[in-house]
Amino acid sequence: MALGHRVRGHRARAVIGSIAALTALGGLLTGCATDSAESAESTAVEVRPELRALLPGELRAESARIAVGTESGYPPFEYTNEAGRIVGFEIDLFDAASKRLGLKYNFVDMPFKTLLGELYGSNVDALAAAMSDTAERQADYDFVDYYNDSDAIMVPAGNPEGIKALPDLCGRTVAVLTGSTQQEALAQLNTAQCQAKPVNVLQFETDADALAQVQAGKADAELTQWSTGAYNAKQVGSGDVFEVANTEIINPTPLGFVFQKGDVEMVRAYQAAVQSIIDDGTYAEILEKHDLSAGALDKATVNGQ
């Protein structure tokens, strides 16, 4: 995900009072807005008044609604189903946490690389986009962590090139999502193990476009998040088109919902809400539904702490 631009002016929360207003915002961001009721498929979650009280005062009003940036091409975290609804693990999780707070929201679907910049510019209030919580990003944003993940090297089924680890990518062509931490990992690889034989990095606007280069024979591999890679290895075709090449863990990193740096009340409220659904078992149910229990957290942390 792109590291936000530095043009933020006066902090102005985007509390959306109507679908019409959010649609206008979606047009501004060249994305589309989706109402929370049309997206998530999570189980019923009751509001906890003591957690709702943690929200900023203006967000406790019955009409309050926040705009949440996402990119709907990254299964199993967020993707568009056959009915045109944005669904997925992170969608269900954000929905459950928001219901616990009694807070309405709308997703604004936009290009992956623009998300942090739109949050930095106060055009959305939060991000739910399988965002890796890194020290570099923490300089400008705060994370409420909800999952542990790592990286996957995606190759054609049968792994004809025998790729097993990151150094095996030296001298090869590798596709990657523009602005992602995986792109940064390849850049670091080229300054370290692959100086003599650099990786030829192909950047794409969506993870699906990057993976398609492997299927078309235009790239030897794709570097992506492990959960997304494992999902695609099982789901594309009959599960015989791609495979995850690495058996060792690469770049383990927490993922989190993202808020503007210093948005203390929102961060505290969502941390408490996520911890609440961890404690009551809702989190485990959502993980199991999406076959992601392996990356479960016991505690909802802020910036990995």
Score class of each variant (00 low, 15 high):
G229M: 02
A230I: 02
Y231D: 00
Y231R: 08
N232E: 13
N232S: 11
N232G: 00
N232W: 12
A233S: 14
K234P: 05
Q235H: 13
Q235E: 13
Q235F: 12
Q235C: 00
Q235T: 14
V236F: 13
G237L: 12
S238Y: 14
S238T: 14
G239Q: 13
D240F: 13
V241H: 09
V241R: 13
F242N: 07
F242G: 10
V244P: 09
V244T: 13
V244G: 12
V244D: 12
A245C: 10
N246Y: 08
T247Q: 15
T247E: 13
T247K: 15
E248W: 04
I249P: 03
I249Y: 05
I250Q: 04
N251R: 12
N251M: 13
N251L: 12
P252M: 11
P254D: 10
P254L: 12
L255D: 01
G256N: 00
G256Q: 06
G256H: 02
G256F: 02
F257R: 00
F257A: 04
Q260W: 10
Q260K: 15
K261R: 15
K261G: 14
K261C: 14
K261Y: 14
G262M: 14
V267S: 10
R268I: 01
V274M: 11
S276P: 11
I277A: 04
I277G: 03
I278E: 04
D279T: 07
D279G: 01
D280A: 07
D280K: 00
Y283A: 05
E285R: 09
I286K: 00
I286P: 03
I286A: 03
I286N: 00
L287A: 00
E288L: 09
H290G: 05
H290Y: 08
D291L: 07
A294Y: 12
G295S: 03
A296Y: 03
L297D: 07
L297T: 09
D298P: 03
D298N: 07
K299T: 10
K299S: 05
A300P: 11
